[in-house]
């Protein structure tokens, strides 16, 4: 019984410490920025680089979009946007225009973690972000 009490107290203390750390740590300027979503797309079609430059500018000026880059030669595109302002499917439909006949989200599901050190850092960051009420 005493053992259970001590374990519970230790657990509570641990959680409280982590919660306090997550919420009291000094966040860097980069961490204070509103979080964004980045999606990578593959493009199909007879891509005309001049038309794509115009399309890139048009997408870039869409509300909620932070940045758009279209690579005509590589048939790839990447868009950074605010998830609460524009959805991934809306971004994809913005890309489906003119010479682009098909837009597919790049399938990265088979990508396994890459460098474990970076993965570990990202997991810690994810945990702290979840506990940090300032980022909610």
């Amino acid at each position: 019984m005493k053992m259970l009490k001590v374990t519970t107290m230790l657990l509570v203390a641990g959680i409280l410490t982590l919660f306090s750390y997550a919420n009291l740590r000094v966040r860097s300027e980069g961490e204070k920025q509103k979080s964004v979503e980045l999606t990578s797309f593959l493009l199909t079609g007879n891509l005309d680089s001049v038309a794509l430059y115009t399309l890139e500018k048009k997408i870039q000026s869409t509300k909620g979009v932070r940045s758009c880059s279209i690579n005509a030669r590589g048939k790839a595109a990447c868009v950074i946007y605010y998830k609460d302002m524009i959805s991934e499917s809306s971004v994809a439909s913005l890309l489906t225009e003119g010479s682009i006949s098909k837009v597919t989200k790049k399938d990265l599901s088979a990508t396994r973690g890459g460098c474990p050190v970076h993965q570990l850092g990202a997991s810690f960051n994810r945990f702290m972000t979840l506990l940090d009420v300032r980022t909610q």
Binding site: S28, E29, G30, E31, Q33, S35, V36, E37, L38, S40, K106, L108, S109, T111, R112, G113, G114, C115, H118, Q119, G121, A122, S123, N125, R126, T129
Partner: peptide, 19 residues
Amino acid sequence: EATVADSYRTQLLRANLID
């Protein structure tokens, strides 16, 4: 690819580059 596959990892890289 591994960075883009994980949105938290992308977020962390972005924050680090800004800083």
